[in-house]
Simulated scan of single mutants.
Amino acid sequence: MTGMKEGAGEDPFADNGSESSNPTEQEKTGDTNAESKATDVRQTGQQQIQIPYKFRRDGVQDGRSRVPLFLQEDTKRAERDALRELEERFDNNVSLTDLREALVKVGLQHLDEAKDNLEQWGYGMTFDE
């Protein structure tokens, strides 16, 4: 007998379709449709479940665009401290890429505070009399 028995040990995130398990050329290059992954919903009996991004991706770069990020030393230290704290809270490793995107998303929800920080760096200053 080959393969695994169906039942409780079955992978709840596995695809049940007739698609090949070999990655397509699009998947190999990382050029996947991020929108379809962002709304991946599976039907189980009468219940719909949404599979969290962490579990439906192939890697931390999956569905993301690369952007350069340069940090001041104090920001880098705060980021490292935040990573350690969140890893303790989750009792699990946290991807630095995931942390950075989460921080950006939270910042986007708090533009007034971001504006205050930019003003501390000199934005909005004028030297006209």
Rank of each mutant, 00 (worst) to 15 (best):
38 A>G: 04
59 G>E: 00
102 A>T: 06
80 R>W: 10
36 S>A: 06
121 W>N: 08
112 D>F: 08
53 Y>L: 10
28 K>G: 02
88 E>K: 15
65 S>M: 13
107 G>L: 03
74 D>N: 13
76 K>L: 15
48 Q>L: 10
48 Q>Y: 05
20 S>W: 02
4 M>W: 08
31 D>I: 01
104 V>P: 00
55 F>M: 08
36 S>I: 11
92 N>A: 15
70 F>R: 15
103 L>N: 01
13 F>V: 04
34 A>V: 05
8 A>S: 14
129 E>F: 03
101 E>G: 04
43 Q>H: 05
126 T>K: 08
28 K>A: 05
80 R>Q: 11
64 R>S: 05
15 D>L: 03
28 K>E: 08
122 G>F: 09
38 A>I: 00
31 D>K: 14
86 L>P: 01
22 N>V: 05
84 R>W: 09
20 S>K: 01
75 T>Q: 11
36 S>Q: 12
20 S>I: 03
47 Q>W: 09
84 R>C: 06
64 R>M: 14
123 Y>W: 15
8 A>L: 12
89 R>A: 10
110 H>Q: 08
90 F>N: 12
47 Q>N: 07
99 L>E: 02
83 L>T: 06
18 S>A: 15
111 L>S: 09
74 D>G: 09
88 E>L: 11
108 L>V: 00
17 G>Q: 01
6 E>T: 04
52 P>H: 00
16 N>A: 14
50 Q>R: 14
19 E>M: 07
66 R>Q: 09
56 R>Y: 03
35 E>P: 07
87 E>P: 02
43 Q>R: 12
7 G>Y: 04
24 T>H: 01
79 E>S: 11
12 P>Y: 12
